[in-house]
Design a protein around this nucleic acid. Structure first.
Lengths: 359, 359
DNA sequence: CTGTTAGCGCTTTCAC
DNA sequence: GTGAAAGCGCTAACAG
């Protein structure tokens, strides 16, 4: 035989956590009863007296249950995985905050996996989450660009769901899974409406890169909103660009240099808008909002610190995360087609927008 | 007996993950060999041929190891807990980013626990982390205010370490555990030196609340730096306040209203500095930096967006997190007194500071 | 180098 | 309502 059945010699390493067995002995009940008293359905199946004794014993011995053992026995870990690009990015930070809050309410632990935008790392983490036997995984952000990668990602996800794991995406990345996202079209509509009401008729648009689902939706929303007002977006008023401040700056420079009669810039991302603000002030020397109004999309906190403070459409990022977790939990028997939840957005008017110059 | 030993009737729930047992059978080896080939020390103790077969079988069956089972058998979970106040706070977000990065390098998963500044939640999470049998826990932020709570916290930590868990604090909260923090005194010294070199001699100080270890150190550093230059800090130039933008604003208002001859404000926190900037511009109408210079401490990203952009001392938050994890891992046999690591800081000169007015 | 086997701590039938 | 016992999937002696 391998080891002596029980009775640790007191020379063993000190990390001898109290076990349910010991609690049971201390309380003078069977281990099964101890288990039921401690973790079973509340109030059911254990006599008041015994339950009391077990609880007392547990407290006295400072018993802490062993989650891995429970996970093994129950094949449920009360843990979910959360895969994001970069936690230092306030966009993801807000989502994580929402997930954390919801997880707490449901007594779940969350394993955080930051991929730093490396697709391979994402695959790797998904696998690890599966290894952990997480009850489910929330996928925020995916560089679903190249098809080869997308296929592997899909495979990995399939494996995960086949083992009984749930998957919910936060933000649409074209994956075949339940999805929680913001209403991008409505965000666009709100931004356009705001500018329109201020009298702007020549609006430059800084859009995101083609292929990004959200960016496409936003652009589509802008087009519709403009068309609905009888002023379809002329191609020369549109520039597509990566979502960085530097790109926003150069794209805005280009746009405003060529199209000198624009009275407003609608950027589909706060970061882009920040870049536009910078070039307007430092390169083009055009007053905001006196000469040109600027509006962004996203509503991240930093927009309040910009100068002038940015008018933007706020995305409910925290709720996005919380809702995603809820959706994950709501799926006891996930059958049928993929579910989609779109959260509403909200216009935040600040100092970067004003009436169109009467010129 | 309870269940039939093996052979799942094909009607069982589909979540039948492949087990090591199955891999072993498929490869025609014992389960022990399979285990060694898959998880054992690289290259050791398994013949090349068998190893190959096991690996092939694993791949073919899409085997994913069961972390809870491993954790149970090895009594190590390859998981660490990370307790923070609020992930949406960029301060913590940066720390988490650093921890994530380091965790990845060490093949560790991190369980994130956000307490939202509720002491009870912190206690609860610590317990849960213990429940998860995490190999260690990183403690960033603790509302170590009331002694009763501090005692309970200490107790919980003791329980954790007694079970073999490691603890490292990020930022000093007076807990008896290894600690990683920034060099607050040096940060103060850098800020003072910068202002002094610009000719400022009457410097107002916005300090943090007494009792906060970091805040105390910073104030101490400021006092020393000033004294070393032959200009001890007069009490009327000092105001202590909570670390919020609103408090910073009102504290700055008070300070600058009473002490009209100050040429600079040194805030021990970026947020406070932001408040000072606001009141200077909107309430007091004093030009920054022409009339008054402002410097902060922390170097969070938003300081670059302030107007004018804030001169500040950057804390290496990401490295703080990474270093903390390293420290956690470095402690194979943690004996002796608590270890302390102080990370260096760096002055970032921007637009909010300039030469003292010659007056 | 490989196989056998006894647990790791807990849940969950099944029988009383 | 309570207890006995069979695993959950894996690791680590121990024996060859």
């Amino acid at each position: 035989m391998a080891r002596t059945p029980r009775a640790r010699s007191s020379t063993e390493r000190s990390s001898a956590a109290v076990t349910l067995q010991q609690v049971a002995e201390h309380a003078g009940v069977s281990i099964a009863t101890a288990s039921r008293a401690l973790h079973g359905a509340t109030g059911r199946s254990v006599g008041e007296e015994l339950r009391r004794r077990v609880l007392a014993a547990a407290t006295e011995l400072d018993y802490v249950s062993n989650a891995p053992a429970q996970a093994l026995a129950r094949s449920r870990s009360s843990t979910i995985g959360l895969v994001i690009h970069d936690i230092a990015d306030p966009y993801f930070a807000a989502i994580v905050a929402g997930v954390s809050r919801a997880a707490r309410e449901h007594e779940l632990m969350v394993m955080l996996a930051a991929t730093f935008r490396e697709p391979l790392l994402e695959l790797d983490y998904l696998r690890r989450v599966r290894t952990q036997r997480a009850d489910g995984v929330l996928l925020a952000g995916s560089g679903c660009t190249e098809p080869a990668f997308a296929a592997r990602l899909a495979d990995t996800l399939t494996g995960f769901t086949e083992d009984g794991g749930r998957v919910v995406c936060i933000g649409d990345h074209g994956l075949d899974a339940d999805l929680v996202t913001v209403d991008h079209r409505r965000a666009a509509e709100l931004a356009v409406a705001h500018l329109w009401e201020l009298g702007h008729r020549r609006i430059g648009v800084l859009a995101g890169p083609a292929g990004l689902v959200g960016a496409d939706r936003q652009l589509d929303g802008i087009r519709r909103a403009l068309a609905a007002r009888g002023a379809p977006l002329p191609p020369e008023h549109l520039t597509r660009t990566e979502l960085t401040r530097a790109d926003g700056r150069s794209a805005a420079t280009q746009l405003l240099t060529k199209q000198t009669d624009l009275t407003a810039v609608l950027a589909v991302d706060d970061t882009l808008a920040a870049g536009a603000l910078t070039t307007l002030r430092d390169d083009l020397h055009r007053a905001v909002p006196a000469e040109v109004s600027v509006v962004g999309l996203g509503g991240l906190p930093f927009t309040a610190d910009l100068h002038p403070s940015l008018t933007t459409v706020r995305f409910p990022l925290e709720r996005l995360g919380a809702r995603a977790l809820e959706l994950l939990l709501e799926a006891p028997e996930r059958r049928g087609p993929r579910r989609t939840v779109e959260l509403d957005v909200e216009l935040t008017v600040r100092s970067s927008t004003g009436p169109a110059p009467s010129d």
